[in-house]
Design a protein around this nucleic acid. Structure first.
Lengths: 332, 332
DNA sequence: CTGAAAGCGCTTACAG
DNA sequence: CTGAAAGCGCTTACAG
């Protein structure tokens, strides 16, 4: 491994001068800079980030704590975050919690020991617990996309989940549906449900409690199971809201398996607008979040915190929009 | 941040002694150890991994270079790798290349600068190019799950892709299909195709070149498009092999959209056995790889390389098995 | 079994 | 504009 010393030797200067040209400090005389850069190129020198990290206290790594990689919504978000982060030279240390709070605790502590510069936390159902730890660890962080009520002053970039639910409910109401059911992950998605209920209430429609089914599985299969049961118990239902697209894809499948045509016999609407929604059969009507913006604002926010002496926490809430495709239609 | 010095001060020893108890060196007198551990607990001390990394030359981070997070096969693998790695205290630095070789080059160089201890490389279509760089960087690595022919002596843990293709072809042959088409990602999956062709040849069946369609899109949508076109051009086809499950899911969808029932009108078989395959409609017949074993052997292999002075590269090839579900049946 | 010294590869004031 | 010194928080021989 070639070090700063080797470069200095070759360029006939001391390592401090090399350090100065690497860090583009404008104190170096052009001629010297030239010589140093030459030496760097010849030797193929590239600064050791670990050493720099120890000296500056910055590792240039951001910890990403996500519930699972099984939901495309998260993976789409992660890929975007990676691109936003790399612009400023940050790398990603990835941790998937799988919803296990003890594992998450362990992961957070390890991240701290790795001198992670900051943390992007997703909502895995245990945020409030993680928040305590993260604060105790004094790790700069931003909550990304989380739904639950968060204490004021917590830095969070998220969507207006209630609004998303509202848009879904409103769409069905305007189509004329009255027999509506909900398949969802609760309590995680309670705000989405709340929004939907509010939109329906404006048309004097109430969702009967027995038609709100919670699935323990976060997967498409969870949607299949829940919807199959739901349609058996309540065959009169004309529309189903799934609190996220992966579940909606399962609902679509359950509809097909029980002989219902979508949207003729049953309307289905999701939330998230994952890539697979557009290519579903039929293409899924859903509520889209501005995910690029979520990624960008999350890293802007976090990097802002890192630079500020006295962090100024703020809450950002991004607005969703309805994406009408072919899985919804008026009831017969 | 509390440091080793603080602990030493409190325990009334020098920091070297603290270091000795942390690293469980059996040279410390029990009484001293006790005192030090007490101090560690009281102060909540936890060693700074960056500093340790600089001193030992080990960052305890493994770089993971993957093509995309959009294919569940990769994300399932990543989650498993994470679990295998954390047992030995290693964290993951994640890079997605998106198939862009220049970006990948940049990522590899940065990984090197971060003093990554080792690298797990997935096949993103540019392995041979990456291999040159990785060797030049002197980064210990293992190729994970890759398909292409790799120079002898390269450490690789993978599946027998040709065998997977063979099993798919054999299954269709045994069911009595003769009009067979293939939807795949080529050249990436050429070995899978080769295996399928070999199995079919044993029944004197040849796949006509025009019935082999390559999709540029790695997604489910790519499968939909390719299969739709294929079925329009070759309506006589009774079975389709998709070179991976995500594509197969798309084929299933295209079949439905063009009014074909699976498996009555068309048999569909995939490869990979991603979680979604089991819950597809109908459940997808596929060829399963032992993914847990792939993850475990990959990290065993890499960690082995890290520990050995003179690395002993080896090639491991894991055997796939056929998983018959409901998307395949004899032709009419 | 414990302590004094040197070093990992960088950066950051501080003199000159 | 450049160099000598100290330090980031650890570990690793090496004396005692």
């Amino acid at each position: 491994m070639v070090t700063i010393k080797d470069v200095a030797l070759r360029a006939g200067v001391t390592k401090q001068t090399v350090s100065n040209v690497i860090n583009q400090r404008p104190v170096v005389k052009p001629a010297t800079r030239e010589r140093v850069q030459q030496a760097i190129a010849e030797l193929g020198y590239t600064p050791n980030l670990i050493a720099r990290g120890l000296a500056t206290g910055q590792s240039m790594m951001i910890g990403l704590v996500v519930p699972t990689l099984a939901n495309p919504f998260y993976t789409e978000l992660i890929e975007r975050l990676e691109r936003c982060l790399e612009v400023d030279g940050y790398g990603i240390a990835l941790c998937t919690t799988d919803g296990d709070p003890d594992r998450a605790t362990q992961q957070l502590v390890t991240l701290k020991r790795r001198y992670i510069d900051g943390l992007i936390l997703f909502d895995d159902g245990n945020v409030s617990r993680h928040l305590d730890l993260v604060r105790q660890l004094e790790l700069p962080f931003v909550l990304c996309g989380s739904e639950p009520e968060i204490p004021a002053g917590t830095p969070v970039v998220t969507f207006d989940h209630a609004r998303a639910g509202y848009l879904a409910g409103e769409h069905l109401r305007e189509l004329g549906h009255r027999e509506i059911a909900v398949v969802g992950e609760f309590p995680a998605h309670r705000m989405r449900l709340y929004g939907a209920e509010r939109a329906l209430a404006e048309g004097s429609i109430a969702i009967r409690p027995t038609r709100i089914v919670s699935t323990p599985e976060k997967s498409q299969r969870g949607g299949v199971r829940a919807a199959t049961q739901l349609l058996a118990d309540h065959p009169e239902v004309t529309a189903i809201i799934a609190t996220h697209d992966l579940l909606a894809l399962g609902v679509l499948q359950a509809a097909g398996a029980t002989g219902r045509r979508v949207p003729d016999d049953l309307s289905v609407i999701g939330i998230d607008n994952i890539a697979a929604a557009a290519s579903a059969e039929p293409p899924l009507t859903t509520v889209a979040f501005p995910i690029d913006q979520l990624a960008q604002e999350s890293v802007d926010h976090l990097l802002g915190l890192l630079r500020l002496t006295r962090p100024e926490p703020a809450a950002v809430s991004l607005t969703p929009r309805l994406v009408v495709r072919e899985s919804t239609a008026p009831p017969h």
